[in-house]
């Protein structure tokens, strides 16, 4: 989707055009779902969170600056929705079994299985982290925000964000090493 087209859709959605918003959902639903899935760990919760995130975005679309790209904003709304869900009542979810394997550029049954197991291990390691560590890993590594931007997105002091990120990486590296070892 070109940025001009996306800007036009954003303007129409902000004015209450449901069709334009549906097109935005169609274009960004996969990215939003994956943010939620990395933070929540199962498909049903992730789909629910993605729906909530889009509904929240619709509600506050007139606050969105259409000159900025939509994806980062939608992903950050999703992170906040997921953190609220985790804090509200949800314990750390376990990964679903039987997920469709992601597309591999070099298909082959053995390579697919190896890749899937490796990805699953990484996802499990992320999900084993405390929610606030998961959030900083998501925002830094998957959304590529700078430390200051993460602090703004989570409304937390910069020093706390740095400290959480460094600890989260250390824990994650140890857990992945344990599994591999």
């Amino acid at each position: 989707m070109s940025s001009t087209h996306e800007r036009g859709l954003a303007l129409r959605a902000a004015a209450g055009d449901r069709e334009a918003f549906a097109e935005i959902v169609r274009a960004h639903q996969r990215a939003v779902f994956n943010v939620a899935y990395r933070l929540l760990g199962n498909v049903q919760d992730a789909e629910d969170a993605a729906q909530d995130a889009f509904l929240r975005a619709w509600q506050f679309f007139d606050k969105f600056d259409p000159d900025r790209p939509l994806a980062p904003w939608l992903k950050q709304v999703t992170v906040n929705i997921c953190l609220n869900r985790i804090q509200a009542d949800k314990p750390a979810s376990s990964l679903d079994e039987g997920l469709p394997p992601p597309k591999d550029p070099h298909p082959g049954p053995e390579a697919q299985t190896v890749n899937r197991l490796r990805d699953e291990r990484i996802r499990r390691a992320i999900l084993s982290l405390p929610p606030r560590y998961r959030a900083v890993i998501e925002l830094r590594h998957f959304q590529e925000l700078r430390y200051e931007e993460i602090a703004r997105a989570l409304n937390r002091p910069l020093s706390d964000v740095k400290s959480d990120l460094f600890r989260a990486r250390k824990l994650l590296a140890e857990r992945l090493k344990d599994v591999e070892g």
Binding site: R18, F21, A22, V25, R26, Q29, R30, A31, F33, N34, Y37, R38, V43, E47, A50, Q51, F54, L55, L99, P100, P102, K103, R118, D119, I122, R123, I137, H141, F142, L176
Partner: peptide
């Protein structure tokens, strides 16, 4: 390892439900 983690495909289109 984090960079190579792929996005999962959606099991269904969420657009009609959200709409």
């Amino acid at each position: 390892a984090l960079n190579t983690l792929p996005d999962l495909p959606l099991s269904r289109d969420l657009t009609p439900v959200i709409y």
